[in-house]
Design a protein around this nucleic acid. Structure first.
Lengths: 195, 195
DNA sequence: ATTCATCATGAACCATGATTCATGTTAATG
DNA sequence: CATTAACATGAATCATGGTTCATGATGAAT
């Protein structure tokens, strides 16, 4: 049988350096950060970069995947906290604040992905996030804190367009306005606290 | 004094054809619609295009300017209707619906403008729109229909991120959610009517 | 009808940035 | 250690698309 030799240590190291550099450079210099720039930032030659990611599209897709996974895990963590007696609307508020920040940071990356036509996202991670979010919304509605007609798609819709280039203060205000539309009573972003 | 000769008739005609083609092609093929494509769609040679707009940035900026003017006029028309007894919150609702659609149509154009670093917008038109909108908001707040803390900047913030790639139904739902956050009583987009 | 400034044409040019590949290194295996 | 498959290097290649410019056409004024 063809025994696949263990991957070389430096290769593993480089892969990580490249992913980090890619996220950083794209975030910094926009979607048109060059492969050369990224390679340089990673302290690696272009050829190495291409060994790990045959195409710029592949590279960007990999960066997006990290982000998607991160969001999915945040959603699941929030749902699990419900079991410990946390209030759903508080968890949703915090989770959405996390997502807002994540979106702001990864804005350029997602723009790059779109421009390159990288397939949407990690379907699995998206599904996990959706399931967790649905549970949170239902719990919030049961508490009477979330409007009855709000759905997961509503959240997707609002956050598919979250502010990106705006400063932090504006992002917080945006979240407050959005929450006002979703909840039955006025809430302010960043105020969720265990009573 | 240097008498500037009147511009030639065909030049005027071509300029318009080019602007229309540019908006159309960019809307259709995204921000990377080529100058060649645009020229072809306008039924004109590239050189002609460059005579009218020395740079792609200039061309895109011109298209954006048309859009900005359109929005400004809509805002002013809405304010003027207040004098005829129209209810402010209705006018705001209708105006925001108009803007949402305009944004959806011009999404790619604005993306192109951003990518090319075209200076923000037509400052004058923006100022006019802002003034009209401020008046509308104040009137709505005086009626008790709009939350007291809502500002013109809030509207800008929300609409700087309006849904773009989404189908019409999603855009309507988005507007409804946003309006729920802005107004004191639940409203549905597209329902504003003279009583 | 004649003249000329303005305008139109489109092939060629050039900068940018993604991608390749021949050559030199290095970590894993025995 | 040898040996070798993996891996790294970076100058060269190639495609794309914005921009230029020498040449020809045309609308306006006399």
């Amino acid at each position: 049988m063809a025994q696949t030799r263990a991957p070389r240590a430096d290769a593993v190291r480089n892969r990580k350096k490249i992913l980090d550099a890619a996220r950083e450079q794209i975030t910094l210099h926009g979607p048109d950060a060059g492969m050369d720039e990224i390679a340089a930032a990673a302290g690696v030659a272009v050829g190495t970069l291409y060994r790990h990611f045959p195409t710029k599209t592949d590279l960007v897709a990999a960066v997006v995947a990290e982000y998607t996974t991160y969001v999915a895990e945040a959603a699941e963590a929030a749902r699990e906290r419900l079991a410990t007696g946390a209030r759903a609307v508080d968890e949703i508020t915090d989770f959405l604040a996390v997502v807002t920040e994540a979106i702001a940071v990864n804005h350029a990356v997602k723009a790059a992905a779109r421009a390159l036509g990288a397939d949407p996202v990690d379907r699995d991670a998206e599904a996990r996030a959706g399931a967790a979010l649905a549970a949170l919304i239902q719990a919030g509605q049961a508490d009477g804190d979330i409007h009855q007609d709000v759905t997961v798609d509503d959240i997707y819709l609002l956050f598919s367009t979250a502010p990106t280039d705006q400063p932090a203060a504006a992002r917080t205000r945006w979240l407050t306005l959005v929450l006002t539309g979703l909840t039955t009573h006025t809430r302010t972003a960043g105020t969720a606290t265990a009573s």
